[in-house]
């Protein structure tokens, strides 16, 4: 399939730009929730009946989030059209369509959460889909890169340390953990579930990364991807602890405190990076390791 595709630097750079903008959007969304600004603009899709309301107080965060979201939506349309017109791999064209559907759904969920006054199930879906959408854009960036089109360095999966299934388990667990975190943030459940989930997810990721480091260290791509995921996960655990501690410290605060906002938003953003890097690792593992049965 890769042999039929041509490397298009413009498409790849555009995909990377979309990923970067999506990460910015995740940060902006995290700021809206952390600054309690979710309902500062009561109407949707307009803001105070205008395209550009006065950017004061919470409106700055909520309308700023909407502006970045609009930009990401437009970038996704361009990406989908670009893929549809130039890409030979059908599954990648379909991924572009899926990304567009996801961003449209995300926009509708964003509007619903405003108009329905932040029901937890809409807000949690909105937050979780944001993370999945970011990972999709990262995957598209990978699939359109010269590195991907150069083809894999296939090696056999070790009988002593199989990782193909384990590499799929990691992103699934990360999505569950992100959904629990989002649900806790939107007051659907207590944060205890998210806290209890963290050692499980971190443990599985550590196990996967250790296996790769010990048994597949000769494979550069695998080693780099595993190290990246391990580093991001380590940062994420630290940020989670910091976010929780600042929340306890400022439990009686009458307004969002900057330190609490900073750690919480970083935790949300690095959560997105954790999912994206676990998805990337799963893709790299399944691309480069031939399954045991075939070995």
């Amino acid at each position: 399939m890769a042999a039929n595709s041509v490397y298009r630097p413009g498409l790849n750079r555009w995909s990377i730009l979309l990923s970067v903008c999506t990460l910015m959007l995740v940060v902006a969304g995290g700021l809206v929730t952390s600054r309690d600004a979710g309902l500062s603009v009561p109407d949707w899709p307009l803001s105070y009946g205008k395209l550009m309301p006065p950017m004061e107080g919470g409106i700055f965060y909520e309308h700023g989030h909407r502006m970045i979201a609009t930009m990401v939506g437009m970038f996704t349309i361009v990406s989908m059209v670009w893929l549809a017109r130039t890409e030979k791999r059908k599954w990648l064209r379909m991924l572009g369509v899926a990304a567009l559907l996801a961003v449209i759904t995300q926009g509708i969920l964003g509007g619903m959460t405003v108009l329905l006054l932040l029901p937890w199930w809409v807000s949690t879906s909105h937050a979780t889909l944001a993370q999945l959408f970011f990972s999709t854009t990262v995957a598209i960036s990978m699939f359109t890169s010269a590195w991907w089109l150069a083809g894999p360095t296939v090696t056999k999966e070790s009988v002593a340390a199989p990782i193909r299934r384990l590499s799929l388990l990691a992103p699934i667990l990360v999505v569950c953990q992100l959904a629990l975190g989002a649900a806790a943030r939107h007051k659907a459940i207590g944060s205890i579930y998210h806290i209890c989930g963290s050692p499980i997810v971190a443990g599985v990721i550590l196990w996967l990364c250790l296996r790769i480091s010990l048994h597949y260290s000769q494979h550069l791509e695998l080693r780099r991807a595993a190290l990246t995921l391990a580093g991001i996960t380590f940062s994420q655990v630290f940020l989670g602890i910091a976010a929780y501690m600042t929340r306890i410290a400022y439990a009686d605060a009458v307004q969002p405190m900057p330190l609490m906002v900073t750690f919480t938003v970083l935790h949300v953003a690095v959560g997105a990076l954790t999912l994206a890097s676990s998805v990337a690792l799963a893709i790299i593992v399944r691309r480069n390791l031939s399954p045991l049965e075939a070995a």
Binding site: L109, L116, L117, L118, P119, W120, W121, V122, T124, S125, T128, L129, L132, V175, C176, A179, L180, A182, A183, K187, A188, I189, G190, S191, I192, Y193
Partner: peptide, 27 residues
């Protein structure tokens, strides 16, 4: 932490992004 098992299990569909199908009471 607020121990709300009903809502905790309500999150399960969200993991598959099927939450729109469920219909808890809006506020």
């Amino acid at each position: 932490p607020e121990w709300n098992l009903k809502r905790f299990f309500g999150v399960a569909p969200l993991l598959l992004l099927a939450a729109c199908g469920s219909s808890p009471q809006p506020s």
